[in-house]
């Protein structure tokens, strides 16, 4: 029965939050409109919002507004408070809404949260999860469409996970909440409604373990979040041409499972990386450097990176469609490394 059960990625994340709040009374959730209707005079206003995609709706009825609390629009304040609370006994899950808003609380995140353990000589821990929506494709323009995970992966002390399936989303959220470090949990907007098998019981997908989504011998494609769908679809199309593509989903960007990637490149000799984040100093660059360091003598072709251009995300569909990597571009990159 459980094997046929399907949930959306959003529902899978909600289920993980529900399980963990039930399991551990120190887990709290906070953010702008995570419940909704705070201060409303209507008796049934609770859960009228539930966060931007309704993910945290329905939790307040069970756990109360003391454990799932709406905040003022004060990101530096409540994310900093989440970090301070984490250092003093709680396990907060803080919702930043859109990742583009990270600039507001960033000092609390990268100078405080990321460094507290190190600066204090290992005498503190900061078990916080920061949830945020990432990615383009809904014409939300330059301040509501970015990925930005490379910035977080760059900073020592932060962990970064980016699920691409409902199954992984639930297991990674569970792992992130139980993890004793600060974890960015990034949810691609165009994956939130995607459905997949999710067991009812609680389970963990460990941080730092990549998943080979499709096996192949000819070329390795590493893709992140929504880009996985392009990679899998490109791989299916190229099969008819006799090209066997291996598709790897890193799932965690920090820690990164470099072993799985390097092993694959050693097998295939070719690497394409598909990353929706802007190209300079992004994960594609990071993974390309890893392969160049660790698997250079196995490479039979130059490494190809498929990314957007070095620009902000444009609003107009005519521009955004040209901005986000397309399946055609992934296919072209694979053909190029196969021809080399």
């Amino acid at each position: 029965m459980s094997e046929e059960r399907e949930l959306t990625m959003g529902a899978a994340i909600r289920e993980a939050l529900h399980h963990e709040m039930e399991r551990d009374s120190t887990v709290i959730v906070m953010g702008e409109d995570v419940v909704g209707g705070a201060g409303s005079k209507l008796p049934d206003a609770e859960d009228c919002w539930g966060g931007p995609f309704g993910i945290t709706g329905g939790l307040a009825g069970k756990f109360g507004r003391n454990r799932i609390r709406d905040t003022p629009i004060s990101e530096a304040g409540f994310i900093g408070a989440a970090i301070g609370a984490a250092a003093t006994g709680l396990r907060p899950v803080a919702a930043l809404m859109f990742v583009d808003f990270f600039g507001i609380p960033m000092d609390q995140i990268f100078n405080q949260g990321a460094k507290i353990r190190y600066m204090f000589g290992g005498k503190a821990k900061v078990p916080v999860v920061i949830r945020a929506a990432i990615g383009g494709g809904i014409n939300a323009a330059a301040q509501h469409s970015q990925c930005l995970y490379s910035i977080f992966a760059h900073i020592p002390g932060l962990k970064v996970v980016v699920p691409s399936t409902p199954y992984d989303a639930k297991g990674l959220m569970t792992a992130a909440i139980r993890d004793d470090d600060l974890v960015f949990f990034l949810e691609h907007k165009r994956l939130m409604g995607s459905k997949g098998h999710v067991p009812e019981e609680s389970y963990v997908v460990p941080l730092g373990e990549a998943l080979v989504r499709r096996e192949g011998d000819d070329v390795t494609v590493v893709a992140i979040a929504k880009m996985i769908d392009l990679a899998l679809s490109a791989a299916d199309g190229l099969e008819a041409e006799g090209v066997n593509v291996e598709v790897i989903d890193p799932r965690s960007l920090s820690p990164l499972d470099g072993r799985t990637i390097v092993d694959s490149v050693e097998k295939t000799g070719r690497l394409v990386i598909v990353d929706e984040d802007t190209p300079r100093c992004n994960l594609a660059t990071d993974i390309a450097a890893l392969a160049a360091d660790e698997a250079f003598y196995s490479l039979e072709a130059p490494i190809k990176r498929v990314t957007p251009p070095h620009t902000p995300v444009p609003f107009s569909p005519a521009l955004e469609n040209a901005y986000i990597p397309s399946e055609d571009r992934v296919v072209t990159a694979i053909r190029e490394v196969m021809a080399a």
Binding site: E32, D33, G36, G37, A38, G39, S40, A45, C48, W49, D70, T71, P72, I73
Partner: peptide, 11 residues
């Protein structure tokens, strides 16, 4: 209202 949050609550 800030989204669904009353200013009576948030200010």
């Amino acid at each position: 209202w800030a989204e669904s949050t009353s200013s009576d609550y948030s200010v």
